[in-house]
Write a protein that binds this DNA or RNA. Sequence first.
DNA 1: TCTGGGGTCCTAGGACCC
DNA 2: TCTGGGGTCCTAGGACCC
Length: 414
Amino acid sequence: MFYNKSGDNVKKQKQILHIDVNNAFLSWTALDRLENGEKIDIREIEAVIGGDESKRSGIVLAKSMKAKRRGIYTGETLYQARLKCPNLQVFKGEYKSYKKHSNDLYQLLLQYTEKIERFSIDECFLDMTEYLGNKTLLEVAYEINKRVKEELKFTVNIGVAHNKLLAKMASDFTKPDRVHTLFENEIETKMWSLPVSELFMLGRKTLPKLNNYRIKTIGDLAKQDKEFMIKKFGKHGLLMWEYSNGIDNSEVHYKEEKPKGIGNSVTLPQDVSDKEKLEKILLTLAEQVSFRLRRYKMYANVVNVQLRTKDFKDFSHQKKLCIATSNTKDIYKLAKELLNEMYKKGTFIRLVGLRVDSLVDKDEVQLSFFSDEEEKKQEKLDEVVDKLKEKYGYNMITRAGKLHSEEIIKLKDV
DNA sequence: TCTGGGGTCCTAGGACCC
DNA sequence: TCTGGGGTCCTAGGACCC
């Protein structure tokens, strides 16, 4: 606690940085290629990282600055991107490599503060409040920006502010390789003139609703009556109103958190209307999901199955398990039930998803005295299979039952 | 549209209980 | 009964993020 001139308690202002890797997947792929002796730096040409069109996942995951200047944006189809840019070069990504580069960045940032929240694979929040020493927040930002460039060979944008929201908004200003401040006295000049769609947590569904109320800029939103926003948009309305006014009291969550749910889903190479096939796919997904669950040493209480039809309609059903479990067989059994109750014969399915929710730590669960022999046997089986998977790689070990679905969906490394 | 996959959080309605 | 009101749990769906 600190004191102002009148002797009142005032909370010390937080000193926050938001680090955002520029065109992360593309930059990191560029580095890997250069390392392998390739001559062309794909950051310097019209290039994107894209999904696999033959697997019906042909979308843009990241783009170079040159591709961006052609109007290509993340999430659009490769087909659309090629129309805008006929010479576009498309490259595949490698998740493992991204993880490594992300860790390299994290290790460098740890030299400045331990209070780092890994917001995604390419974004971090730093709470520098207690770690500035005799430097200013801005000086640290420039130092990090320079060191990342020199030592890690990619560039970052850094937002400098007194809360996470403003730091995040700031890092999104002009790109790449820039440091931007967004302090309270700069909100009006730097943020309020932006289109309201630029505000964090304001998505494509909310934009037209706001436009209906003649709200076009973040400033327009900030000047709305708070109660009006709550009345029209509920909690989300309050959140948007606060964000537009630069209000955010959330902390930097630097302690590693356990997941609240774990899920895997797969877009099928062809639409499927055969329930037996869907069940096989569910078994494959159940193996994947429960393997990840066991790796976290957690149990699930809820199983959720998602289906997407060929015309892109999503359905999901979920159900509580009788007892929390991480058992492949138990999770698959309930998933199959859910599929059976929701699948209408003859419907063409494009995507199948399986996720587990309401996760609890394994050692916080009361072990049942009556867990029967069959259950113990299943646990042992999972344990043995998991060990083999850890040793020889996830895809080396399969169950007989799902062999057929392996022909349909090829698993990636977990 | 030739439209990914992994998450978190919120809302609304129904069941059930007091 | 021509039936109140509030709390909690469960489920389905949707919005948003990277």
